[in-house]
């Protein structure tokens, strides 16, 4: 081979950030769904918990049965799992196994890396929500709404929830010292917030102080929002304010998107500095 063939000509343009990012999204998805651990513990876990809790609380009562309330609320758990937890542990892993270091040595920039993560989160979250709805419909006779207005609510709620959880997951990935501890570190707030935000238990049965604190965090509003989409309006009486509070929900989730973005921009790093 000649030297001319071996040296890159400076006229060839680099692949765009978007193209590289979408290509990364493809391999991120492949790696996620091929990893049995991720599929069982991150992806299937919320559906398993829903099937169990729903079966335990399946007695008919006034209004919607508790199993349907759970099915609606636990869409929040699904998003926390595929956005917050999987992105947080995923980045901690990427930092530890050399993915980020390797990418740092190629023309891939942070933008392309995050486009890849966004593709992963979007596809995994949609699949997760579809799985949870299927469990709700097939096991607990949850009725899918026919009113387009409710699907519109579902749309913005889903988008804001995914964006907020993903950004917070990216920021939280830096808190864990190792990839192994990341799962534990990220699961703790997820479990605590779900109990205090009325996802696992009905919000009307929680102490008032707990509800007030939980109102500062996104999980409370995600659960309430998804209940507003899939439960009849008569069920709004059981909520804290006696109504669905859509404007407040949008405001709180929007605020968490901003907080998450600021935290990401200030804390993200390619490698673990502590690793020397």
């Amino acid at each position: 081979m000649t030297t001319a063939l071996a040296l890159p000509s400076s006229t060839t343009a680099l692949p765009s950030t978007l193209r590289t990012g979408l290509s990364r999204g493809g391999v991120e998805l492949r790696m996620f769904f091929r990893d049995k651990g991720a599929v069982i513990f991150t992806f299937s876990f919320p559906a398993i918990v829903l099937a169990l809790l729903g079966s335990i609380n399946d007695e008919p009562g006034p209004g919607s049965p508790m199993s349907q309330v759970l099915a609606a609320s636990m869409i929040a758990y699904g998003i926390l799992s595929t956005a917050f937890i999987s992105i947080g542990t995923g980045i901690a892993n990427d930092r530890e196994d050399g993915t980020l270091k390797r990418l740092r040595g190629t023309p891939v920039n942070a933008g392309a890396y995050f486009i890849g993560k966004t593709v992963l989160v979007a596809v995994a979250s949609l699949a997760e929500v579809a799985l949870l709805l299927a469990v709700g419909v097939l096991m607990f006779d949850l009725e899918l709404p026919t009113d387009p207005g409710r699907w519109l609510t579902f749309g913005w709620l889903l988008a804001l929830s995914i964006v907020a959880c993903t950004l917070l997951g990216i920021a939280a990935s830096g808190l864990a010292r190792t990839a192994r501890s990341a799962a534990a570190v990220l699961n703790l707030p997820v479990l605590v917030l779900q109990f205090t935000s009325g996802v696992f238990v009905h919000i009307s049965s929680l102490p008032e102080a707990m509800v007030r604190v939980a109102a500062f965090f996104p999980v409370r509003w995600m659960g309430q929002g998804f209940r507003s989409v899939f439960l009849p309006d008569s069920m709004a009486a059981g909520e804290v304010a006696g109504s669905w509070e859509h404007p407040v929900t949008a405001l709180v989730l929007g605020a968490w998107c901003l907080i998450g973005l600021v935290l990401c921009l200030t804390t993200f790093r390619w490698t673990d500095k502590r690793a020397g």
């Binding site: 692949p15 790696m31 990893d35 196994d97 050399g98």
Partner: peptide
């Protein structure tokens, strides 16, 4: 690199093909 263990779930060809897409030439 000396110690990377990334891309564990991809095949050898998939990994090389994917990285090829990062470069202009």
């Amino acid at each position: 690199l000396q110690t990377a263990t990334d891309a564990a779930e991809l095949t050898v060809r998939e990994t090389i093909k994917h990285f090829r897409g990062y470069y202009p030439n």
